[in-house]
Design a protein around this nucleic acid. Structure first.
Lengths: 243, 243
DNA sequence: GCCGATTTGTCCGTATGTATC
DNA sequence: CGATACATACGGACAAATCGG
């Protein structure tokens, strides 16, 4: 894959932290030592360390060192985080995933859709509803809209496998970033029909806009999660800035 | 202030983007131009730009430029994000906030608390329950535990005002980072008593561990939000990230 | 309390690679 | 192909914070 040097260092340190070779509350070797270990400049080391901070694995302390604050996650729940496909998330949690397409249509964005999704009025879209199952149990209802002009050729068959695979491997388009909003909403008729929420009358709802490498929004998604299968993790820095 | 240069540039660009001087989908002046504008090195400009990417304001496109993808937020809902005090969030959303301390105790961490919070067994803690109100309506139930040895001298009176103010202004301790987990949970008896969830039988629950500048965890918090007042926003980059 | 060693934080300059147009 | 613009990497300098003697 011919990655960059700092990405390699990041990956290596991340693994060592996860394996608890560097344990919680311990101090990493100083930057000067890592420079020798990885045979690179201090800037490059610092970049890798900055990434580890971003994901909440370490915290650097001026005059002291870089402290590990990573703690193993309890594997009980279904964790989302970063941009991952459903399959990636499922396999990371060691569960069998299964997808059922329950609606596949082509629509044109109107005023209402524009307000909800940010797609310009008149944009031609694929509209897809999918039911996600883990070990056979329905747990997420996904509603996707894709800009047809940017992501052409989606079929029901592709939706049934993995649309992201199709986008990246067939269309060779790179997905760059995603803006997400999480809320808790009351269950709807549609949710009742597909998700079997039992006596829960709320769902965790994640709506997201996804941008490709060119900064164009090509996807709007609403994921409606059964509470039991929803867990979102995050790290925040103070002073770093709040929106 | 005496802030760092890159922080000033970040702040300036952020304001210009929010005021839509640089509008959605437009390209910022190239790094080379910003170097002249802000009279600094390219590295420094790039650091500010990296921060803007982190908060989902811009996206850099190789060979093209840095594109603005910020869109004004709908002010309808109560947005949390970053580490903010309840008051900061409330004032940003232009609402009158009010806090009622409904329990104040001192406890010692046992096995059960250790598993739940990460505090070592035997740690002496303040245990506080507070009800947060917006414009008079209860909307969040906060359960806090503070390490007494690190944050000494909390009183009911302080809890009623702002514990974070006390920590930063009185104890002069700097808060550095926070790890959070969001889930949706069934309402409990206690929730029923204080929050009036109406016919909602679920809440949005944010649990967090907060670390000080020295990498020591000094706080565990569980915030139980009424669904109507909960909204969390986030930005994610696929494949590690750039800079 | 001071001082010096260590370690991270900020900033600069330069060079080279890669992608777009 | 050349010009432009971002991406990666190196090296050096000095400041700020911490810690031990």
């Amino acid at each position: 894959m011919a990655k960059s040097k700092y990405a390699e260092i990041f990956k290596d340190l991340k693994l060592r932290i996860e394996s608890e070779e560097y344990e919680y509350q311990s101090i990493l070797p100083p930057e000067s030592a890592l420079v020798v270990t990885y045979d690179c400049s201090r800037n490059t080391v610092r970049r890798a360390l900055a990434q580890l901070m971003d994901i909440g694995y370490v915290q650097s302390i001026n005059g002291v060192g870089v402290k590990v604050i990573y703690q193993p996650v309890d594997k009980a729940s279904f964790v989302i985080g970063g941009i991952e496909t459903f399959k990636e998330s499922a396999s990371r949690n060691k569960l069998n995933s299964d997808t059922e397409v329950i609606m596949f249509a082509e629509i044109t964005a109107d005023e209402r859709i524009n307000r909800r999704t940010g797609f310009d009025v008149g944009t031609e879209l694929y509209y897809i509803q999918r039911l996600r199952k883990l070990d056979g149990k329905p747990c997420i209802l996904d509603i996707n809209m894709f800009d047809k002009s940017i992501v052409p050729g989606i079929t029901e068959e592709i939706a049934n496998r993995s649309i992201y695979d199709y986008i990246e491997k067939e269309l060779h388009m790179e997905i760059a970033m995603s803006k997400r909003k999480m809320t808790v909403e009351r269950v709807t008729e549609v949710d009742m029909k597909w998700l079997n929420p039992g006596d829960y009358n709320c769902l965790a709802v994640v709506t997201s806009q996804t941008f490709n490498k060119m900064g164009i929004m090509f996807e709007y998604t609403q994921s409606r999660h059964l509470p039991e299968y929803f867990c979102f993790m995050d790290t925040a820095m103070r002073g770093g800035m709040q929106l």
